[in-house]
Amino acid sequence: MMRRLFIGSVWLYFALLLIGPILYLAVQSFNEGIVAFWNEVTKPEALHGFTLTLEITAIVLVVNLVFGTITALVLVRQHFAGRTMLSGLIDLPFSVSPVIAGFMLILLFGPETILGTFFGTLGVKVLFAMPAMVLATLFATFPFVVRELTPLLQTIGTDAEEAARTLGANEWQVFLKVTLPMLRWGFVYGATLTVARAIGEFGAVLVVSGNILMLTQTATLHIYQSYVDFNYVGANAVALTLLAVSFAILTVLELAKAKAAATVA
């Protein structure tokens, strides 16, 4: 009896909060027919948005994987003053509102600041351009790779690496042939979360991009613009496309989880 009640309420909770809204959006997107949907998704503005989002995501993914790995290694394997401080800083983006994150970048790179003047004289446009959008997305996604790798690095320890060294492997070989393969599911997981967040990032990018049509308008910004312009079909169509990507991401996450569990066991 209790069991039924519990399971029933959980189903209801999920239905009202998750399943219902998702299904309804899917239905709504095709309200005006599949042709309208297709036209909206293939509009130049929409295509430009997808491309820009893809570019930013690719850059962010590479930078995050490189620096995320380095940071995780330093955090777990090295002991130095300020290490715990560094660790605390890494978690910060989780708790900072995206709008505030974007605003902080504006304050940092604004025309009157040292950094702003510096890049200004170099002729590099940071704010309302690609660099700031990448930085904003990097800020939001930085913890993912690091926080996936640190516990893994702690669990696997250094035994296997030391074994490889006794077998004559140099540092680079140890890293490539031992450390990286052992971390692979952490990478998959961290990378997938990074991609998800990068594609979906809105608040920070909105603030630093200036939301300039066909120039700094990512897919999410394009959705926002369409919504504000009362083009609900357009907004929903692009949104549904991103939703499909989300489901693909979710599938990868679930598979990675299962694989990781299998590897550990």
Partner: peptide
């Protein structure tokens, strides 16, 4: 119970969906 795996996988969904899309979904339904 039937559907447990499904619900468990769905829990991660809010992390994968852009928040803006979340807004659209709630506004729609």
């Amino acid at each position: 119970f039937p559907g447990r795996w499904f619900l468990n996988a769905l829990v991660d969904l809010p992390f994968a969906i852009p928040t803006l899309v979340v807004g659209l979904m709630i506004a729609a339904i």
